[in-house]
Amino acid sequence: MILMSNTPVLQIKNLKTYFYSRDSVVKAVDGVNMEVHSGRITALIGGSGSGKSVMSRSVMGLIDKPGKIVDGEIWLNGRDLRLLSEKEMRKVRGKEIAMIFQEPAAAMNPVVKIKDHLFEAVHTHDRKARRKDKMPAFREVLLGVGLRDPDKILESYPFELSGGMCQRVMVAMGIVANAGVLIADEPTSSLDLTTQISILEELMSLRDAGIAIILITHDLGVVAQTADDMYVMKDGKIIESGTVREVFAAPKHPYTRYLMEPVHVEELR
């Protein structure tokens, strides 16, 4: 176990992200406070439309019109990301925060080979890096995320890989970027059960290596088996938070309790 430091690596204070349409305002994220620690998996759980994905995109600085971060602070490594320019933010993305998406194949440029995707992830924070020098490291990382034939994979295009393999490559990109914070937005929702397990195990070993992971999911099983801390989100607000054990042992909010009660279909049989 890594010693848990008391200062969070990422701290979100009163974050508000609103979406404006012609006649209404959607408060997708409405005053969220959150702390993320190194060496821990922090789960953000909520139903569809609860604002959890908007929240992660706000942290990454990826909110476009008609959305806007209206208020709040996002502290990462002693800086408020909201005060950074787009150029500075681009350096932060990939170098300090990396992100894994739900549809890995859609998040990767289909005509760029895997090795170039990986190199791109390195290049954002290490301008002097040379492609050739990095290849052995890439091979090792790919082996590390459970891809058995790294040489073949490096030369492949994203569409030649299965969904699970693409997701592993995304995890690998997160690793080579050497970012201290990794946001995983529903990393396993589109995958099969057996693949899901191995991806989650990769995430857990990253956690053990001291990386802070935000795991966005709607699956309580995933939270219970992998996460350390959890935040429950509903209608843009955090309604409950705590360590996973605490929350599962004694859920306070009625919505959390509703989520946790098992499916009682048996009596309907």
Binding site: G146, L147, R148, D149, L161, S162, M165, L193, T194, Q196, I197, S198, L200, E201, D219, L220, G221, V222, V223, A224, Q225, V244, R245, F248, M260, P262
Partner: peptide, 25 residues
């Protein structure tokens, strides 16, 4: 293997066996 991959929504029930099948690309 499929059943072992189901994640119990209970942090106190830890999975014992990890992966019960070989992975293939």
């Amino acid at each position: 293997a499929l059943l072992a991959a189901v994640l119990e929504p209970d942090p106190n029930v830890k999975r014992e066996k990890k992966i019960l099948f070989k992975e293939s690309g």
